[in-house]
Design a protein around this nucleic acid. Structure first.
Lengths: 252, 252
DNA sequence: CGGGTGTCAAGTGCATGCAATTGGAGCGCT
DNA sequence: AGCGCTCCAATTGCATGCACTTGACACCCG
């Protein structure tokens, strides 16, 4: 239009949601621990955007319960209490029972293959860090939810699963993923057979046992540099400004 | 501190959430119909804030699913499809079964009195408009959720209930509230007796029947003036700027 | 030496300004 | 008339600037 149409701005993938995704991942992978401070301008610097955008992203994450926003104070990664964690799991159990009830016997071959492929990935990642395993396990559940084709259900399952993920990072012990993988396989099998009650029972037990393992004390370790922590996550943001600013940063 | 501490800004009750509340109410009372446009600056004018704030509020409401945000386009009130409405009710049923399961037999006398008082209010409002009845009925369910003392559960029940409210406004017929009030009373009674299974069944049936009534055709009526529609809702915003701007507005 | 107090930098809350995008009105061409 | 084009007003996307709040440190006084 008018004079010229710059093809530079055509990326358009909404900076806010990009930052949300990055932060979400950093949080559930425990790169950002519960209680970690998230000052708007540090975020803005790291991701190459203004405070306005960083602020907006924090608002979204707060709505999801991953971030705590206190008026006139620096935002922090949410630190769910034990009770809140338990509540989240209770809700999650109900939601995911609904998911598998809707899915039982209705999956295509391709979908079952996709699920199996994901569990294979979980298997392969068994050598990786705890946080990565937890993230993959969480993504399995989200993948299931997506197959319901119910955007609302996907949203709620994702949110509550991320929340649970957050608390798992806090409380759980290393070996917890081991058996979960088998349980994932069992769920897939039961879904294929179409026995709704059976798969609901499996899912219930699966989540309940994961939750029950989360009864150990937390392991605090605060205080790393925000800019360092976020470095790998900022790479995903495709903008020359990031690079430029990354050099300057370092004023923590 | 320093020179002076202006006591003017001490109100501090977070403009964003005030606007969210106002818009939420306007939406679920059908003052703003699904599809209604919500331009940032009109909102800002009406509520006496800048676009920044209005925008942020829209973001929150979008996260709740009440508003649809399209890139570079005017935001609109969400228009849930019939399928989405059904999905929302399915989720809601599970969540509220959880609520009453947790509550059965554990309510204090005072809480039961509070619930009864609310239903009395619903009774009294039977003469009012449909939208008001629907809102009150919805608030009954939210009140229940709040009694679980689980902030997460409150949030999800509220959200999904508002969503359902939105679709009810779209699809439902006048008489639908009549019997719902009796069902509310029955639920309170069963909660008092402490029979968890019974009250879960009651709640399930209650929500299911409400949902099943929502099968009639929508009644479109678009096109009123945003500034007029919002007038009664803007009154809640305590700021002299609102008054000033209200006179100027009118540039639709 | 301890507790109140002044000062200040870091950070948030919000408004405003500017560039880019969009939808549509007007206009010409067929 | 119908179709496409250009241009413009309305509106969003985003950065920046300024006022206010908060927490911390140094300072002073008892």
């Amino acid at each position: 239009m008018a004079a010229r149409t710059s093809n530079k701005t055509s990326e358009s993938l909404d900076k806010v949601s990009v930052i949300c995704r990055a932060l979400r991942r950093a949080i559930i992978e425990q790169a950002l621990e519960p209680g970690a401070k998230l000052p708007e301008d540090s975020l803005g610097e790291r991701f190459g955007v203004s405070r306005t955008i960083a602020r907006h992203a924090l608002g979204q994450l707060a709505a999801e319960g991953l971030v705590e926003l206190r008026r006139n104070r620096i935002a922090v990664v949410a630190t769910p209490s034990w009770q809140e964690a338990r509540d989240a799991f209770d809700i999650r159990i109900e939601l995911e029972r609904l998911v598998v009830r809707q899915l039982a016997g209705k999956l295509t071959k391709a979908q079952i293959a996709e699920l199996n492929a994901h569990v294979d990935a979980e298997d392969r990642a068994r050598g990786s860090t705890d946080a990565v395993s937890i993230r993959l396990a969480t993504e399995f559940h989200i993948l299931l939810a997506q197959m319901t084709n119910s955007p609302i259900l996907v949203r709620y399952v994702s949110e509550v699963a991320y929340r649970c993920c957050l608390t798992l990072s806090l409380f759980s012990r290393p070996h917890s993923t081991e058996c979960a993988i088998n349980e994932h396989r069992a769920i897939i099998a039961a879904l294929g057979k179409g026995d709704a009650d059976k798969v609901m029972e499996l899912m219930h037990h699966h989540l309940d046992s994961v939750a029950n393992r989360a009864l150990v004390a937390p392991t605090p370790q605060r205080g790393r540099d925000l800019l360092d922590i976020l470095a790998p996550y900022a790479d995903e943001v495709t903008s020359e400004r990031v690079v430029k600013l990354t050099k300057v940063a370092r004023r923590g």
